[in-house]
Design a binder for these strands. Structure first.
Lengths: 258, 258
DNA sequence: ACGGACGTTGCAAGCATTGCAACGATCCAG
DNA sequence: CTGGATCGTTGCAATGCTTGCAACGTCCGT
């Protein structure tokens, strides 16, 4: 809608791939170097990009700090956190919380496994949307049309032999997940890692987040992990209850005056 | 430098404080609602802001994902990580890695304590710059003038009785840190938490990052924590060595699958 | 010393951006 | 149910911001 802003913002994902110098940025934007320079300068003033010692640009610290604040302001996360910790204390495994937003699913909280073997994941990282148990729950709740459109649009990387292969299979899986109200990922992302997940619902019944327990084969088998399902669902329901109980408005105080 | 982009970017920190509707954004930007609307739309198209069900705007998922990529591309982090993990295995405490960038110090990696009592911190969060041991190391290495200017500009919140009280005291502390080549924070941020930190240096000797080990009093006393200093320094030196040894170029491939 | 590559700056022309005003929708009070 | 207020949205014309150009400075390698 705004050409200038549009161009400026297009620089960010470009720099996310790695540092770039002025010429490279200008080329990839398709604008004159002087234009790119001025955009980069503006981004720099706001701390969104940083100019390293070799004069090349990369993403800046303010961007990271902003993202941090963005996550801390998600009230779901705040409400859910203590529950996640408690669940971790009970079962010892890695616990994740994720949300869906405009075609992406992101982890917004995580409590690390208490076992020595840990899985790799990171808060803020987009999840493997076609296989992750939390992603299935979140997508399964989308309106029919949107779900179908999204499924068509996605790539289906074959992480393992058990990864979801294509859109029809994915849609079938989502249907199943939607009916049973929980989801699993049995080695669909990493051969030796299994997850069980349950949805967190708002007052209107819509799925607002999803949580999962993940553990590698070497610690517990898939069957053993499945025995945790009731516990996971109870935890998710507890979060749902607390979240729904809240007054949906929270204008006046909330944060602070300003 | 570019008015439009400047305005658009100013919206982000504003939304970081909490969700806001169109009118609020327009007011705080000092522009007409229609203008604010178009800026927000552009931000929306790039996923930087998200429009929640009540039509208010908040920061979006893409922002978080970008920040994530930004951190993953820091080669220091990549090199340091295994060392941090090893250190954690040896001492069991929380290990942090931090960098300085334009007046901010941020944690860019963390390995959680293996003790049940954990300290609160989060990757990407700006650190308490006037007291944190890692911050002292990073600032101590700045050029005289910049260091002095920064020290004057900072606030000195009295987190505890042992927090750095003001600029002169801070500068003296930095001087000391610079000479001894390591730093501590003994209850300066949280009464019961102590840290020991050591610098990671690039090939030219400049401090490029700092790492620390933190533990609450209830687990180990400050004196006991100090006995870990040699280990921490050895680890930091190992990272420095590996970092300096590297070819500074790393263009062509760099990224990949995950 | 010279040529090339790169970042940077002043300037004029053109177009994108802006504020306005009017419209539609939603919500609440009477 | 209806009037009024509030909020988000859109077309339009004016102007002021943005753009590309060309020239300059600097740093490098030849």
């Amino acid at each position: 809608m705004s050409q200038t802003v549009d161009r400026a913002l297009s620089i960010l994902p470009l720099l996310a791939e790695g540092p770039a110098d002025l010429g490279q940025v200008a080329d990839r934007l398709g604008v004159h170097k002087s234009t790119a320079l001025r955009l980069l300068r503006t981004l720099h003033e706001h701390g969104m990009v940083y100019r390293q010692s070799d004069q090349r640009y990369r993403l800046g610290a303010r961007l990271i700090a902003l993202a941090q604040e963005a996550m801390e302001n998600l009230d779901i996360r705040e409400i859910a956190h203590p529950h996640l910790v408690r669940l971790n204390e009970q079962c010892g495994h890695t616990v994740h919380l994720a949300v869906y937003e405009e075609s992406e699913v992101l982890y917004i909280d995580k409590v690390e496994s208490r076992y020595p073997v840990r899985m790799y994941s990171r808060i803020g990282k987009p999840v493997a949307i076609t296989v992750a148990a939390v992603a299935k729950l979140l997508l399964a709740d989308l309106p029919e049309a949107e779900r179908r459109a999204l499924a068509e649009k996605l790539d289906y990387p074959a992480y393992t032999a058990r990864s979801t292969p294509n859109a029809p299979a994915f849609l079938r899986e989502l249907e199943k997940v939607r009916e049973q109200g929980w989801a699993t990922d049995l080695g669909g992302h990493e051969e030796s890692i299994n997850c069980v997940a349950a949805p967190v619902r708002g007052a209107d019944g819509r799925v607002v987040a999803a949580m999962s327990v993940s553990a590698p084969n070497v610690v517990v088998t898939a069957d053993e992990l499945l025995t945790l399902l009731p516990l996971v669902r109870r935890t998710a329901d507890a979060i749902s209850g607390e979240y729904s109980g809240r007054t949906p408005v929270k204008d006046s105080e909330a944060k602070d005056p300003v």
